[in-house]
Design a protein around this nucleic acid. Structure first.
Lengths: 105, 105
DNA sequence: CGAGTATATGTCACAACTGACATACGCCGC
DNA sequence: GCGGCGTATGTCAGTTGTGACATATACTCG
């Protein structure tokens, strides 16, 4: 990982490092990251199921292609708010979101 | 509702008004608000089940009493991130959070 | 009635997120 | 190889969220 990215991530509040360092995450932090990852993958699934490009999806969400890419990557600069609101806007139901979150990692 | 509060809410991005105006929310916006409300009530349940005060809870979350109050009220100034991270920190599991979100309004 | 405790609301300086833009990477058909 | 397309990454100005503090309301116990 380049230093620039690490700086950005750390400013954004994540502990950053190689795989071994993940053990330093508290259980809550780990659960939160996994939860975000699950929603991120679901967003990609939803988009793929419709056959849309990130650019088309971005237009639909009134956002930008880069933000959609970051959402799907569960980038630390993406909030849960944005992820969930995007999923709902793309047609997921509240129950769908709940199911994805509850599903084991 | 006092004007001051209405101003604050509108600055925070909500459409504000009496009950009838809620019809102006898009379905996604409504679902998002309900989802937040469900988590907010769950936070209060969790706290009450432990017999903690908001102040004690705030210390545990490294936040302030006022923010806990706002979380439980699903105040627009509270993000989903904060709500979910708080629930996890208070002992809720990822599955618990998912279940609360999925549950019908 | 106070004093004490729990919760709610208003405000602000500072930190984090967002959309947009630029640019880079990877893949495919020509 | 090159151009086009889809996706990924870096950056930044403007907006929004956060913790803390002050203050307000509400309830209980002497």
């Amino acid at each position: 990982m380049e230093d620039a990215k690490q700086d950005r991530l750390e400013r954004a509040g994540w502990r950053v490092g190689d795989a071994g360092d993940f053990l330093e995450l508290t259980p809550e932090e780990a659960a939160f990251v996994e939860l975000k990852l699950a929603l991120a993958f679901y967003l990609r699934e939803l988009r793929a199921a419709q056959g849309w490009t990130q650019t088309q999806t971005a237009r639909r969400l009134r956002s930008s292609q880069s933000r959609v890419a970051k959402m799907e990557a569960a980038d630390p600069s993406v909030s849960l708010d944005l992820l969930v609101r995007s999923l709902l806007a793309l047609g997921a139901s509240r129950a769908d979101v709940g199911r994805v979150i509850a599903r084991a990692a």
